[in-house]
Design a protein around this nucleic acid. Structure first.
Length: 427
RNA sequence: GCUCGCGUGGUGUAGCCUGGCCUAUCAUCUCAGCCUGUCGAGCUGAGGACCCGGGUUCAAAUCCCGGCGCGGGCGCCA
């Protein structure tokens, strides 16, 4: 290891001892006879205090002229000092320049001027050095970790399904087309049909956290063309049961985020607390609540959802959607005008769509035809339904969006390291 | 897919409507210098920009057309 202590982890018992630190030299304030440098690593910032008369003149000059954001290794005595930021400083005997940063920087890490997200994403490696940016990813990791832990606790088996698929299965959104040797293949928009095959495979409870791709040319703060989807599928369960899994999962995630006190403080936000069960409104009620902004039988527009969000405030479910608005694999309700499909919302943002699935092969063929699809093209998908398919339900939840909510971010890109949107393929 | 808008130093902006006083504002930044307790350090000096092409005009950062790049809203969705 290059260092003996991290910048933000100097203990009282270290005072008076010699330590070695490494990190990024973020700032130099040369007052003439005394200079203050700020050394940063992932744990925090420590002040290095240089006294001109106690140092070799060349060293003083050299060390106070290092370009900011250069990598240095510093050795010296650490001590308590009430005048220093954080109450701790180091008096370096030696500063070794491990790797000098070029100047000017593509964006200022500690500048008072904020850069635009475009500039920031182009230089993400610099952007991430800001604690308030990195904090988003701490939150995201807490969410992702809690999701794995929770679903395993509820006996879900983690699976991975292919992302290269042969045909445009679900319909609806457009897929990215790609070359697969001398054939055409597509990038999967969702693991939906594979999850269902696994129900036919008798695994009963599965989950997958993986990428999904959608070739839609949208340009909004909450859409990406590559996103991470948390998907579950559960046998012998209906829509109501998987909504229960959903709310317990989100509650677990919320509790995990609440423990990230440092990240939350950096972001200046309060943790979100949930009270289970989360509210459930039917589609009919939602239309009612939209104050005339929605028409029955139509998808809820952004305008309508905003209206509803004002009355719901936070997480909630919209259940019993009209069957005509849901994909072919969603089970009709007792009244076939409705379905057992639901959406999970956070205010006006759709987080999840899910529902009970059709498990009867004949009904599935009917539903395909109703939606103008040819059942013959779906044989690989339909086969598992012929030899013992249990009733099952499931959903897909956007990890990026969930992280965005918990991090209090206004743009999903804030919570995705290297987002892929309409125009961006790099870095 | 529809629609609205934007493009000025490394970064973030003012100026554009109402063309000339723009040798282009301010901040940050970079460089040089002064300063022994900075903590948004201060002070002095210097450096650096009108997306590209065409047009209108005596005159274009400013008006018009085209291109390129980008953003927002809607649709669709996670």
């Amino acid at each position: 290891m290059f260092y003996t202590r991290k910048c933000g982890e100097i203990e009282e018992s270290d005072f008076g001892s010699e330590q070695t630190l490494c990190g990024w030299l973020q700032d130099t304030r040369n007052l003439g006879g005394i200079a203050f440098l700020q050394l940063r690593d992932i744990t925090g910032v420590i002040q290095l205090t240089l006294l001109k008369k106690k140092l070799d003149a060349d060293d003083y000059k050299k060390w106070t002229n290092i370009n900011r954001e250069s990598i240095v290794l510093v050795r010296g005595i650490v001590k308590e000092n009430k005048e220093a930021p954080g109450g701790v400083e180091m008096l370096p005997d030696n500063i070794e320049l491990l790797n000098e940063a070029e100047t000017p920087l593509p964006l200022g890490v500690i500048d008072k001027i904020d850069s635009e997200i475009e500039t920031r994403l182009n230089a993400r490696y610099l952007d991430l050095r800001k604690s308030e940016i990195a904090a988003n990813f701490q939150i995201r990791a807490a969410v992702s970790g809690a999701v794995h832990k929770h679903l395993r606790r509820e006996k879900f088996l983690e699976v991975q399904t292919p992302k290269i698929i042969a045909s445009a299965t679900e319909g609806g959104t457009s897929l990215f087309e790609m070359k697969y040797f001398d054939k055409t293949a597509y990038l999967a928009q969702s693991p939906q049909l594979y999850k269902q095959m696994l129900m036919g495979g008798g695994l009963e409870r599965v989950y997958e956290i993986g990428p999904a791709f959608r070739a839609e040319e949208h340009n909004t703060p909450r859409h990406l063309n590559e996103f991470i989807s948390i998907d579950i599928e559960m046998s012998f369960a209906d829509d109501d049961v998987v909504m229960g899994v959903m709310e317990r999962l989100v509650d677990s995630a919320a509790r995990a985020v609440a423990k990230e006190t440092e990240a939350l403080e950096t972001l200046g936000i309060e943790p979100i607390e949930l009270e289970l069960p989360l509210p459930r409104i039917t589609y009919d009620e939602a239309v009612e609540m939209s104050n005339g902004k929605a028409e029955w039988g139509e998808d809820l527009s952004m305008e309508a959802t905003r209206e509803i969000a004002e009355q719901m405030n936070g997480f909630y479910f919209i259940t019993k959607w009209p069957l005509s608005l849901k994909p072919f694999y969603i089970q009709p309700d007792d009244d076939p005008k409705y379905s057992r499909g639901f959406d999970f919302m956070y205010n006006e943002v759709e987080m999840t769509s899910g529902g009970q699935r059709v498990h009867d092969v004949n009904m599935l063929k009917e539903r395909l035809k109703e939606q103008g699809l040819d059942p013959d093209g779906f044989n690989h998908y339909l086969d598992p339904f012929r030899y013992g398919m249990p009733p099952h339900a499931g959903w897909g939840l956007g990890l990026d969006r969930l992280s965005m909510i918990f991090a209090g971010a206004k743009n999903v890109r804030e919570c995705v390291l290297f987002p892929r949107d309409r125009t961006r393929m790099t870095p």
